[in-house]
Design a binder for these strands. Structure first.
Lengths: 150, 150
DNA sequence: AGTCTGAGTTCCGTAAGGGAACCCCGGGCC
DNA sequence: GGCCCGGGGTTCCCTTACGGAACTCAGACT
């Protein structure tokens, strides 16, 4: 198939999807986040095709979300999150919260997050960067910004 | 291609991706969120193939994220977010924040969000549902939950 | 020299996306 | 009654991306 290029759109959602919107990319980030940082670990844990894994890792490195760094004198490499990549984990934590709430069913969440600051099991909530109050889908207006399409 | 099924994995991220991980799905939600709710509006705004749009809408309705409701005595339908779907917009707002920060460049953000509660332009930040302090990638431990893989 | 291991690369078959053309149905208009 | 219109899809073909398995390559170990 040919795939439409989201990166050119005047929309931060589309642009973000251009970076991590392809199938597998968020799961690759998840694994690296939890400490599976090597090619074969990723391949085995995800069950992804090696070909696609190679492509995705290269792309994510290219976009500045991961770096590829040697961990041995042999040609051995591991992938680590850049600051950009760490901020993308925000997205993963929101997915965890949504999936836990709506898709976990009787069994309950497969993974729990414990917050260092309070030591409790919890989940993320969205707040306004300005006033700290909750900020959800219906709490905002959308206005054209400086980078709006001409 | 055949595509691996994420829905079966014991991971809320994978399950969430099973719902909105396909290309276009988040952009469809975005459009519906901003008020483009009809088939032809979506098709034109996104430039998506009608075939794929049909599939995606059907799937999203199926997963309980959208509902299809008539808006005329003629067979005319619009798509609206369910409560589940509205909570998925959280994800979109985090994408906006990340894309604005890392991909907007010189031009600045294409769209600004104004928070009703404070009236200011702002963006979302992630806080802990328990203690209200910030909660980011490195502020959490991951523990096995009740629904962990057997 | 032979083997092992991590990290890819190559190749083929299949299915998913793109795009354009086509269809269907109810309403309005003459 | 016959005709057109417009929204909301379907159908068809073409191209490309994924899945999976086999192959390669370089350095270290024995």
């Amino acid at each position: 198939m040919q795939r439409t290029n989201f990166g050119e759109m005047a929309c931060s959602i589309a642009r973000t999807l251009d970076v991590i919107g392809e199938p597998w990319s968020p799961l690759i980030l998840r694994d690296i986040w939890v400490g599976l940082t090597r090619f074969d670990q990723l391949q085995e844990d995800l069950g992804i095709s090696r070909k696609v894994l190679t492509e995705r890792l290269g792309y994510l490195v290219d976009r500045g979300v991961l770096t590829r760094r040697p961990y041995d004198r042999r040609p051995r490499y591991e992938y680590v999150l850049t600051p950009r990549g760490e901020e993308l984990v925000d997205l993963l934590m929101v997915m965890v919260a949504w999936g836990d709430k709506w898709l976990a069913g009787e069994a309950g969440p497969p993974v729990l997050l414990r917050h260092h600051a309070c030591g409790e099991i919890s989940h993320v909530e969205l707040h306004c960067s300005n006033c700290d109050k909750p900020m959800r889908a219906n709490d905002v207006d959308r206005l054209p910004g400086p980078g709006a399409a001409s």
